[in-house]
C-alpha cells in the first residue's frame, strides 16, 4: 500500500482543518484540548501522561511506553499528552479531573468528555491498562450507511475517504 506520512490535503479540505498544517509546527497551546478534539474525530481515547522528571520511576514508565507493542497501541487508540507535574497546567488539571492522591509518574486514560476511565503507575501493567480502556470500534458499514442517507436526503454525494491510523 502507498503510504503518506504528511497531513493530507484532503483531510484539510474535507474536515475544514487547514490548521493541520500549522499544527505540525504549532499545535494548540492546550495540548489536552487538542488531543481531545483529535480523539473525538478519530474515536480514540486521551492518554494523559503525568511526568515527574525527578522521580526514578519516570524513566521506567517512559521505557514501558516506548515498547513497540505499546507504542503501536497508543498510536492507534490514544491521543497522548504528556504533562510535567508541579506546573500550573498540571496542578489545575489534576484538580479538575479529581485525581486526588495519584502520584506521578502516572498514566490517566480519559474519554473525550474528560471522564477518567482509569489510572496506572506500574510500568509492567501499561499494555494491559491501555488495552482495557480502548474505545469500542465503530462499524464501517454503519458509518457509510449514515453518510449515504445524509447525502441522499440533502441531494449531495458522499465523499468517502479511506484512511488508516498509520
Amino acid at each position: 500500500m502507498k503510504r503518506r506520512r504528511s497531513p493530507c490535503v484532503l483531510c484539510a479540505i474535507a474536515l475544514g482543518a487547514m490548521a493541520a498544517l500549522a499544527s505540525a509546527q504549532e499545535p494548540s497551546h492546550d495540548a489536552l484540548a487538542f488531543a481531545r478534539a483529535k480523539a473525538t474525530s478519530e474515536n480514540q481515547r486521551v492518554l494523559l501522561w503525568l511526568r515527574d522528571p525527578n522521580a526514578a520511576s519516570d524513566e521506567d514508565l517512559a521505557k514501558a511506553l516506548a515498547k513497540p507493542a505499546v507504542r503501536k497501541l497508543v498510536r492507534y487508540e490514544y491521543q497522548r499528552v504528556a504533562l510535567p507535574v508541579a506546573t500550573l497546567p498540571a496542578t489545575a488539571l489534576a484538580h479538575r479531573l479529581e485525581l486526588g492522591d495519584l502520584q506521578a509518574p502516572a498514566l490517566v486514560a480519559l474519554d473525550t468528555d474528560d471522564v477518567v476511565l482509569g489510572t496506572a503507575t506500574d510500568p509492567e501493567q501499561v499494555l494491559e491498562f491501555l488495552r482495557a480502556h480502548v474505545s469500542a470500534p465503530v462499524d464501517a458499514r454503519a458509518v457509510l450507511a449514515r453518510g449515504l442517507e445524509t447525502a441522499k436526503h440533502s441531494e449531495r454525494n458522499a465523499f468517502v475517504y479511506l484512511s488508516a491510523p498509520w
Partner: peptide
Amino acid sequence: MRTRFAKDYVVVMLDVERMTDGA
C-alpha cells in the same frame, strides 16, 4: 472552505484498520 465543500459532499471517513469491517 469546509462550507463550500459541504454544498455538494457529505464527508465519510472510513478507517480501514480500526473500524469493524473497515478492510
